[in-house]
Each structure stands twice: as structure tokens, then as C-alpha cells.
């Protein structure tokens, strides 16, 4: 915020916090940490509770992001935190940043969690801790050097930053710009949004009807192809159409 606002860039922040499984309530405390946001019309912060969604996002997150992206220059999505296989957010954003605290894991844990594969930028926060932060950055770099990513030739940057001392933020802003530029120059942005749209439609359908439901109208691969072909429809329209198809198929007796 302190870096982008002086440039005149408007921004929206969608901050997702966990819900209590038992009460359904949630404490959304992100505004406390962001000073002076609400007095600036160029900044919007919306806190959301994850409710019962897995994947680190809330139900309405995608809808919120789509709307906000039309009104603000940049939209930031902060998730509950990503554990194993909880990277639904990757299907939602153009640039995925993974922020890790020093000492929160070694190389093996990073690899096990599968988080080395998706993010476009890695940031080790609390660089003010010195050696610990540098070691964590080193672990990430050696993990990325092992390969297994599509962009093996140009591995994603690993940055050090400190929210406390406000250091490394400019470098992060520059990395975000560079990634965006790269996406715009090639076919990257369109490709990414296409994949995101597919992922979102499939995930929502699966949440509603289960894998049984997806299989009833041809299974995930066939569906993916259909979604790709129907490029003009919005994700929400596709969900409605395909949902009706699934419901119809499930009502029919299954052929043996």
C-alpha cells in the first residue's frame, strides 16, 4: 500500500481468515494490521470468513475478485494459509506469491507440501531475523533448483523482506510488475485465466455434486475441454449450465 498508492495505483485487498468449525463465527483481524487504509478512497479492504470451504478461500472470494478487478488497478488476495493441496487461490490470481516465515520449514517439508510448484514469487518475511531468514531463502532456492516446474529455465525469484522494517517491499513490487509484464508479453495471461476458469468451474461442480456428478456427464477431462471451447460464457454461467446437466444425468437410471 505504501509503495503502490504514491504511484497512483488503486488497490483492493481481499483478506480471508478462518472460520470456527464449531460456531461458524470468525474473527477477521486484518484491518488492525493495515493502518490508514480506510481513509483513502483508492484502497478497499474486504475481510471474508472462509466458512466451510477448504482451499484457503471463501465462497464469495472469486465473485469479489472479479468485481473488484473491474474497479481497482490491482487486487490482492490474502488466503488463510496454504497447506498441502490447498492452493485453490492459484486458479484465481494472475500472480501467486508465497510468503513464508523464517524457520517454518525445511526443504523436505516444502517439497512435501507441494508448494514449490505453483507460486510465481517466493518471499521470506521477517528478514530482520537475519541468518534464519537467509537460511530459509536458501532452502527454497535449492528446492527450486531441483526442477519439476514448467519454468525450469527461469526459476521464480526468492525475495527477502521485512514487514516490520518495511524493507524489501520495493523489490517485491518490482517482481510483481516484472511477472505481470512477462504474462502480458506472451500468451501467459490468457492461458492462466483460462486454466483458472476451468479449475474454478470444475471445483465448484465437484463441491456441489461430487466426483460422481462430474463422471455422470463425462468426467473431468471431457468437461475441461468443453469449458475451453465455450470461451464466451462466464464461469458462473457455465456452472449453472453444467450443473443442470449433471442434475438431469443423475436423475436418469444409469446404463449398465
Amino acid at each position: 500500500m505504501r509503495t503502490l498508492r504514491p504511484r497512483g495505483t488503486t488497490l483492493a485487498i481481499v483478506a480471508v481468515d478462518p472460520s470456527s468449525r464449531e460456531s461458524g463465527g470468525a474473527l477477521l483481524g486484518d484491518r488492525i494490521r493495515v493502518r490508514s487504509g480506510s481513509a483513502d478512497p483508492g484502497v478497499l479492504i474486504r475481510s471474508m470468513a472462509a466458512r466451510d470451504r477448504l482451499g484457503g478461500l471463501a465462497d464469495g472470494t472469486r465473485a469479489a475478485v472479479v468485481i473488484l478487478a473491474a474497479a481497482y488497478d490491482r487486487v490482492f488476495v490474502e488466503t488463510v494459509g496454504v497447506g498441502q493441496s490447498e492452493i485453490a487461490v492459484a486458479a484465481l490470481v494472475d500472480t501467486l506469491v508465497y510468503v513464508v516465515n523464517p524457520g517454518t520449514g525445511d526443504l523436505l517439508q516444502f517439497m512435501k507440501a507441494g508448494i514449490l510448484e505453483a507460486p510465481d514469487i517466493f518471499v521470506v518475511n521477517k528478514s530482520d531475523l537475519g541468518a534464519d531468514a537467509a537460511r530459509t531463502a536458501g532452502e527454497l532456492e535449492s528446492g527450486l533448483a531441483l526442477g519439476g516446474r514448467q519454468d525450469e529455465a527461469a526459476p521464480p525469484p526468492v525475495l527477502l523482506a521485512s514487514a516490520r522494517d518495511a524493507t524489501g517491499i520495493d523489490a517485491l513490487a518490482a517482481a510483481l510488475d516484472a511477472h505481470r509484464q512477462a504474462l502480458l508479453e506472451g500468451d501467459g495471461l490468457r492461458e492462466r485465466r483460462r486454466r483458472g476458469r476451468e479449475g474454478f468451474v470444475l471445483e465448484t461442480l465437484e463441491l456441489r455434486y461430487g466426483s460422481f456428478g462430474l463422471d455422470a456427464i463425462g468426467g473431468p477431462s471431457a468437461l475441461r475441454a468443453r469449458i475451453r471451447e465455450d470461451a464466451a460464457a462466464t464461469a458462473f454461467a457455465l456452472i449453472a449450465t453444467l450443473g443442470r446437466e449433471i442434475e438431469a444425468a443423475l436423475r436418469k437410471p444409469r446404463a449398465r
Binding site: 460456531s23 463465527g25 470468525a26 477477521l28 483481524g29 484491518r31 488492525i32 481513509a39 470468513a49
Partner: peptide, 18 residues
């Protein structure tokens, strides 16, 4: 939160405008 509300806790030192 315990009774099931979603709570935006904004903390201290806020202007009425904020």
C-alpha cells in the same frame, strides 16, 4: 465470534471517518 458472528475487529485509534 463464539456465538457465530463474523467479526471485523478493527482495533484502536480510529477516526469516525475510518
Amino acid at each position: 465470534r463464539d456465538v457465530g458472528m463474523e467479526v471485523v475487529y478493527e482495533g484502536i485509534r480510529l477516526t469516525p471517518d475510518e
